[in-house]
Design a protein around this nucleic acid. Structure first.
Length: 579
RNA sequence: GCCCUUGUAGUUAAAUGGAUAUAACUGCGGACUUCUAAGCCGUUAUUGCAGGUUCGAUUCCUGCCGAGGGCACCA
């Protein structure tokens, strides 16, 4: 439709002898200003030496005079404000778009921007032996949504997770676990409970490392032995091997339980232990070309290529690869294994500067990859008391946050006439939605100060609000089928319902969300859509004999439910049957 | 010091250079013995400060102020 209006305007411009202008066509915020609006008159006014208002009138007249083939959907053209030309779409257009939604069903809103392309999205990236905290929850919600948006744009989507299974953090946790004599046999605890104990040991071990010289030495020794164990390059104490295997498995299994709850399924799990040697080989091969030696370390001078970049160490003076080198191994591996057209990585903003340097180094080796690597960053979850740090142990774990959120929902439904099984399922779906929506409702970028009361909402602008609205709509549909009401053909209302004016915009919102890689546009749109439905619902009795539009209203509700379902899917949120 | 991100009602957020800056929360008030009240309706703005570009700036540019992050061997 937008393209048609643009075509129409271009034709009018040609007739008026105006050339070479760039104008925009957009949806006005207020429906009273039409369904589409253009600023073309205001853009040309100066060049034409007239005032925008007059020019708009002239253009509107010209537009109205044009032959209407193919533009039958435009019912009315008016000028308003400072010189806007507003287009009003016809009843038929909206009636058509409702049936289009019903025809397309689960495919409604998809586009073909990425057809035939492959996109890999890396997100979440928790580390074994460390807690899964809200930051990971944030990255997961965003990454999962981006993956689905990309998928809806026609790409084959590959989900990847990158996890640090080696390094000082592992040694610190193991040091404390051994000191505690924590059993590595089956002790009846769930993986989630075990992972919490391990995460706690990590914080304790870190504390010891900082205040106790002996512990520090011991931890460094454990760290080295773990490297030996993994690379089969030297000796490693049997006890350390045992704790390593057990702790790695326990934390990874715990993460898996959380992913299941959140609705994420990864295609690839990459580990730092595997990426380190791959990256190291590449870096060493390029010493003298891209990297250079300095103070016994191997470094990369980013500022030589772009003055906004800086120098980073890739292999430290002890000959060990740093995170930068592992990242090179990871990126190279991704392109070797899957060769995606686009590789997207989601992390917190603290990694933004460092990633630019690493990507520059990779681009120097593989110029063709430069435009295919994308890094999207989100703000950090912080506590009102300051930065959260799993080293200090003052993190909110993802597990506890999910549990709290689900508990609140359970409390709300506990008096309903539902089975316990159903109540649990609702708590899960709604609790997860509350959390995800609170993350996805705002644009990426600024930090979020964590406050349970504020960060999770169940009314107003919230995930449960969207779910609740969809559930109510569904319940009307179910009731109409039971009583077989509204199945006869009825009349189509003459007036256009506000809800209809929003529904057809869904595919545009999806496209915009993709091109900006910002899921919050979908969240904002769905909230507006739901609010519009609730107004309609409040003012209209659907299932009554006097409603001669019942059949049309039911179709409209079906289209609404379909749009909500598809939109919520893009946010990684399910719609429960009841709530 | 240099670089990146960021600053919008009391609070949390929205707004591809457009019309009267949009919502939610909180407070106060209201409707409905109708399909789920997690809902609906009503009621508050010097967009951090100062300039600039533009017919038009929350949005772009410059400077200043505040917050967070990065800047050689953590990830």
């Amino acid at each position: 439709m937008k393209e048609q209006i643009e075509k129409l305007i271009n034709e009018a411009l040609k007739n008026l002898g105006i050339e070479d202008v760039s104008f925009s066509v957009e949806h006005p915020e207020d429906f009273k200003n039409g369904d589409y609006s253009t600023n073309v008159a205001m853009v040309c006014a100066k060049q034409q030496k007239t005032n925008p208002r007059e020019l708009a009138e002239k253009m509107a007249l010209e537009l109205k005079g044009l032959p209407k083939q193919g533009f039958g959907d435009i019912e009315k053209i008016e000028t308003a404000g400072a010189g806007f030309i507003n287009f009003y779409l016809s009843r038929e257009f909206f009636t058509e778009s409702v049936s289009e939604i019903l025809d397309k069903g689960d495919k409604w809103g998809k586009n073909k921007i990425l057809e035939g392309k492959k996109v890999m999205v890396e997100y979440t990236d928790p580390n074994p032996f460390k807690p899964f905290h809200i930051g990971h929850l944030m990255a997961n919600a965003i990454g999962e949504s981006v993956s689905r948006i990309v998928e809806f744009s026609g790409a084959k989507t590959i989900r990847a997770n990158y996890q640090g299974d080696v390094g000082p953090h592992v040694a610190k946790a193991i040091y404390h676990l051994i000191k505690l004599g924590y059993p590595t046999t089956d002790n009846g605890l769930s993986y989630l409970a075990l992972s919490l104990a391990i995460g706690d040991s990590y914080a304790q071990g870190n504390n010891e490392y900082e205040i106790n010289d002996e512990a520090k030495k011991e931890i460094e020794s454990i760290n080295k032995q773990i490297y030996n164990y993994i690379n089969k390059s030297g000796e490693c104490d049997e006890k350390i091997k045992e704790y390593y295997d057990w702790g790695r498995k326990a934390t990874l299994e715990a993460f898996e339980e959380i992913y299941k709850l959140l609705g994420t399924k990864f295609d690839y799990y990459f580990f730092e232990s595997v990426m380190a040697p791959i990256g190291e080989k590449i870096v060493r091969e390029n010493v003298g070309k891209i990297f250079e030696e300095s103070d016994r370390a191997i470094i990369f001078h980013g500022e030589n290529y772009d003055k906004k970049l800086h120098t980073r160490v890739f292999i430290n003076s002890q000959g060990l690869p740093t995170y930068e080198t592992k990242e090179i191994g990871l990126t190279t591996t991704k392109f070797e294994k899957e060769n995606p057209d686009i590789s997207i990585v989601t992390t917190a903003i603290e990694q933004a500067e460092y990633m630019k340097v690493v990507q520059k180094a990779i681009s120097l080796m593989h110029p063709d990859l430069e435009s295919r690597m994308k890094h999207i960053t989100h703000g950090m979850m912080r506590l009102s008391t300051g930065k959260m740090s799993s080293r200090k142990g003052n993190v909110i774990t993802g597990e506890s946050l999910l549990r709290d959120s689900m508990d609140i929902v359970f409390e709300k439904v506990k008096d309903r006439e539902l089975s316990n099984e159903e109540k649990k399922r609702i708590s899960q779906i709604v609790g997860v939605a509350a959390l995800k929506y609170s993350i996805l409702r705002s644009s990426l970028g600024s930090d979020i100060v964590y406050d349970f009361e504020k960060s999770i909402s169940f009314d107003g602008d919230s995930g449960p609000y969207l779910q609740y609205t969809a559930v109510r709509a569904n319940s009307i549909l179910a009731k109409s089928q039971m009583s077989r009401q509204g199945l006869d053909n009825g009349e189509i209302p003459e007036n256009i319902i506000d809800l209809e004016k929003l529904l057809y915009q869904f595919p545009e919102v999806v496209e915009r969300s993709y091109s900006l890689l910002e899921p919050h546009h979908i969240a904002t749109y769905l909230t507006e859509l739901a609010s519009s439905f609730n107004t309609f619902y409040g003012n209209t009795q659907i299932l009554v004999d006097e409603n001669k539009y019942m059949a049309y209203h039911l179709n409209l509700i079906k289209a609404f439910v379909q749009t909500m379902k598809n939109g919520l899917w893009l946010l990684g949120i399910e719609v429960p049957d009841r709530m």
